[in-house]
Write a protein that binds this DNA or RNA. Structure first.
Length: 895
DNA sequence: CTAGGGTTAG
């Protein structure tokens, strides 16, 4: 029977039976199995041929009717008595592939309802499912019954218990394994060394390790090497060495495995030389260092930056009687990758292929990292595709994560998203890292809604967010200007009691700094210090930025010294931020001073630094020094990038030197620097500003024809110029193009156009844009309201502005993609009532975040605009420090 | 023993 089953489904049997079958193989003779299998449960009227098809027919029926329905139906009951173990086995195998739970249920149902006696194979199948699902109690029942069937009765209890202990311990179920251990002691059952070693392994990072160690009666080599490994992990390296030297097990002698643990630990602490000396000790003890030992040292050398020595040691391996393996080459490839020497990564892998070794997933992943690091995203995508076609798809989520990260970093979020779902279709399940990468990518680009959606999806899959995920969400909130919400999230993380990373604080401090709230940034910074968390340079850099943003350069300058007080070193960012503030005032003297200080402290200027320096020259009207700066850049090995060019082009435009500005555009292209959308913004703006509207329009068209990606600004600049020049037709034409191209058109864009049109008394066109805005679901802001009120064609009343208390308007804001910012407004007996439709924030909907602005006293301004006789549009604007909710509803009100 | 994710400046 078993042979037939193997032939029937060979792939399943090895996967399903391997660990358990060894346990029983000695206990069951093949003849007893055959006897059990062939014994019918009841007298049968079926021929043998019919019998063969019986199982298939039942399966067919089950599939057609539905499993549970079939089993409880009359059709099944009528054949149940004819069911034989062969059929049950076939059905169970079939069901396992579809649903392990169903097959357990089938097993139990047959036994409990029909009193079916299951075969050894069925019992083993079910045991495997139960063991896999850690349902140890049920497993025990099944296995015990199986043993009883075999006539072995209870003397096997010990084996069962020990196996349970071993399995639970190996599955890292520490509490369960301790419980089982306790029970076994109560029952006076002996514990195998294998099971004990596994428990020891789980406790090797704690002091409890010794209690387990003492309890083990017959210790073996594994026991000792686990202790050594444990001591290494507890940073007790000297204890590990002395345990190795003076322990009680001289008869067995130390193993290479123990030395490997010690060498690895020394490497991790950065003591590669000490680690190397242990290689000699290994030899002195008469042991042979394994490939493993060499790999540990080679890895240590690579991480220490000594790639030369690492290569040398790899070359010496054959002298020591071992050959480098795939892991060795992977380590070397990663070493070169870390040094940014991507070409050598290829070289190493080529050598590996020459040696006849096969690259594994890790080799490919390192290559993929190289492509992504060089910005060759498309090459990366091709490599990933190649990997998938080589059947690596089920191996790991990591290569996909590398690709996701590469796509996100280059802003190709749609492709990242599509890869994210394609990999799942291929059976690669995203983990916390993959989710965090995509969530971060979305947050970085301001796609907060999508990020929250993914975050919820992740939580629903019981993948718990960690510090990185929270960091991404904080960043997303800050980028959207939702600093209050970011702070609320940070506070809630703090209130969970775990110590937070400085980076999480940095994100919020920077959020404050960027929105000009230096006081709040400082308050949070003080909080960081009070909770004993060490700030890093980025923390201070954000503070510098915050001071500069609020025009307090003197304080910003002082932070530079504070950095040193904290025993940190100011970075290029620190200096560049400050220099930028001085450059914006054209203070080239201070810029130069900082440049000298930077040099004296051994910090190299970056592309950012140079563009700031050049900007300073432009604003300070010291362009004669420009060529000298270019020479400095060249000698420092810093090549100008697009933004350096943009800076110069912008200032040429401001100086009305459009000819040279366009010359620089050509120079950029000749240097293989693809102009950015901002480059075109600057040029188009320059043309419009000096009245070359026709040229601007022509330039815009030529760019469109060449399918160059343009920003919304390029269009609105030309549109605004048309409004000013009194050509609303062209303005309308271009504006519709902007909408067509899917740009995110904001109230400010409408406002800019409407303002200009009103100023030119083009009321008809202004009204057209106003209606266009309403039809696109964009709410007007106060500016537009004012302008429209002034415009003679539109009637308007300002009813009143009143302060509402928290009780009157319970304002909360829910972050969900669908947007639940619904506010009910009723106009009754001449008085106005405002209610939020979603009530008090609820704490039981934790998957969505609720923010209640409890400290907010909203200021409510309601304005009515007559858009016709009976149709009135009601605009509700709730303002505090910023506009929180903007809702537009059109109501029919009898006036 | 080898592969993936975060903060700051133009």
């Amino acid at each position: 029977m078993i042979c037939r089953w193997i032939a029937f489904n060979p792939s399943k049997i090895s996967r399903v039976l391997s660990p358990f079958s060894s346990l029983f193989s000695t206990k069951l003779s093949s003849s007893s199995v055959a006897k059990l299998d062939d014994e019918p449960l009841s007298a049968t009227n079926f021929t043998s041929d019919q019998r063969d098809y019986f199982g298939h027919e039942i399966l067919f029926g089950m599939k057609k009717i539905g499993f549970r329905e079939y089993l409880h139906g009359g059709q099944f009951r009528s054949v149940a008595s004819e069911l034989r173990q062969v059929h049950v086995e076939e059905i169970m195998c079939e069901l396992m592939g579809e649903s392990p739970d169903l097959s357990v249920w089938f097993f139990k149902e047959l036994k409990d309802v029909y009193g079916f006696r299951h075969s050894r194979l069925s019992s083993l199948l079910v045991s495997h499912i139960l063991a896999g699902q850690r349902r140890f109690k049920e497993l025990q029942v099944v296995v015990e019954e199986l043993l009883r069937e075999e006539g072995k009765k209870w003397e096997s209890t010990n084996v069962v218990w020990d196996m349970l202990l071993f399995l639970s311990s190996r599955s890292k179920m520490v509490d369960d394994s301790l419980y089982i251990l306790e029970k076994m002691r109560d029952l006076n059952l002996s514990v195998s060394t294998q099971a004990y070693n596994s428990i020891l392994y789980n406790f090797r990072e704690t002091d409890k390790m010794w209690d387990v160690y003492k309890a083990i009666e017959s210790k073996n080599e594994h026991t000792y090497s686990t202790i050594v490994d444990g001591l290494c992990r507890q940073q007790k390296l000297e204890d590990a060495v002395s345990f190795l030297r003076d322990s009680e097990w001289k008869d067995i002698g130390p193993s290479v495995v123990s030395f490997n643990s010690i060498m690895s630990a020394y490497c991790k602490l950065g003591f590669v030389d000490t680690a190397k000396s242990f290689l000699c000790t290994v030899l002195k003890c008469g042991l042979v260092p394994s490939v493993h030992s060499h790999n540990i040292l080679i890895n240590g050398l690579c991480l220490a930056g000594s790639i030369g020595e690492a290569l040398e040691l790899a070359g010496d391996m054959s002298k020591h009687g071992v050959e480098p393996d795939t892991v060795t080459y992977n380590i070397l490839a990663k070493g070169f990758h870390l040094l940014g020497m991507i070409k050598w990564v290829w070289e190493v892998i080529q050598q590996m292929l020459d040696k006849g070794l096969t690259p594994d997933v890790i080799t490919y992943t390192i290559l993929l990292c190289g492509h992504c690091q060089l910005g060759n995203i498309d090459k990366g995508l091709r490599l990933l595709k190649d990997m998938l076609s080589r059947g690596f798809e089920l191996n790991s989520v990591i290569p996909c994560s590398v690709m996701l990260s590469g796509l996100c970093k280059t802003g190709r979020i749609e492709e990242a998203f599509s890869l994210f779902y394609r990999m799942q279709a291929n059976g690669v399940r995203p983990d916390i890292v993959a989710y965090s990468i995509v969530i971060h990518g979305l947050c970085r680009l301001g796609e907060l809604d999508l990020a929250i959606w993914l975050y919820d999806e992740m939580c629903a899959k019981r993948i718990l967010p960690n510090s990185r995920t929270h960091g991404a969400m904080l960043l997303g909130l800050c980028r959207k200007g939702m600093i209050l919400e970011a702070r609320a999230l940070l506070n809630s993380l703090i209130s969970t009691g775990c110590t937070l990373d400085i980076i999480l604080y940095n994100i919020v401090i920077d959020g404050y700094a960027k929105s000009g709230c230096i006081e709040e940034a400082l308050e949070l910074f003080r909080g960081v210090i009070e909770s004993g968390i060490t700030p890093n340079v980025a923390t201070f850099n954000s503070l510098i930025h915050g001071y500069c943003k609020t025009q307090n350069i003197a304080e910003a300058r002082k932070v530079l010294d504070v950095i040193k007080l904290y025993k940190l070193v100011p970075s290029a960012v620190s200096y560049t931020t400050l220099m930028n503030a001085y450059a914006n005032c054209g203070d080239t003297e201070r810029v130069d001073e900082l440049r000298r200080e930077m040099k004296a402290n051994g910090i190299s200027p970056t592309n950012f630094t140079y563009s700031v320096i050049i900007k300073g020259l432009c604003i300070g009207r010291k362009l004669e020094k420009y060529n000298q700066v270019l020479r400095d850049m060249a000698s420092e090995g810093v090549t100008p990038d697009q933004i350096t060019y943009n800076t110069v082009i912008q200032h040429l435009c401001r100086a009305k030197d459009l000819f040279r500005a366009f010359e620089l555009l050509e120079e950029m292209k000749s240097r293989n620097l693809e102009p950015t959308p901002a480059t075109y913004d600057i040029l188009i703006n320059g043309l419009c500003f000096y009245g070359y509207l026709k040229d601007a329009e022509r330039f815009l068209c030529s760019l469109q024809e060449r399918d160059v990606s343009l920003s919304k600004f390029a269009y609105t600049t030309v549109i605004k110029a048309h409004c000013v020049k009194g050509d609303p037709e062209m303005a309308v034409k271009l504006f519709l193009q902007v909408l067509d191209r899917g740009f995110d058109v904001s109230v400010r864009d409408y406002s800019a156009v409407i303002n200009r049109l009103c100023r030119r008394e083009l009321a008809k066109e202004a009204k057209f844009f106003f209606c266009l805005m309403l039809s696109r679901g964009v709410s007007p802001d106060l500016d537009i309201c004012r302008v429209m009120i002034k415009s003679s064609d539109v009637l308007g009343w300002t009813i009143k502005a009143e302060k509402l208390s928290q009780e009157e308007i319970n304002l909360s804001y829910r972050m969900v993609p669908s947007g639940a910012n619904c506010i009910n407004i009723s106009f009754f007996n001449g008085s106005l009532t405002v209610q939020s439709s979603f009530g008090v924030p609820s704490t039981n909907t934790k998957r969505h975040w609720w923010f209640c602005f409890s400290s907010l006293k909203p200021f409510c301004l309601v304005q009515f605009f007559g858009m016709g006789l009976k149709s009135l549009s009601l605009f509700l604007t709730v303002t505090s420090c910023k506009v929180v909710v903007l809702g537009v509803r059109t109501y029919l009100v009898n006036v």
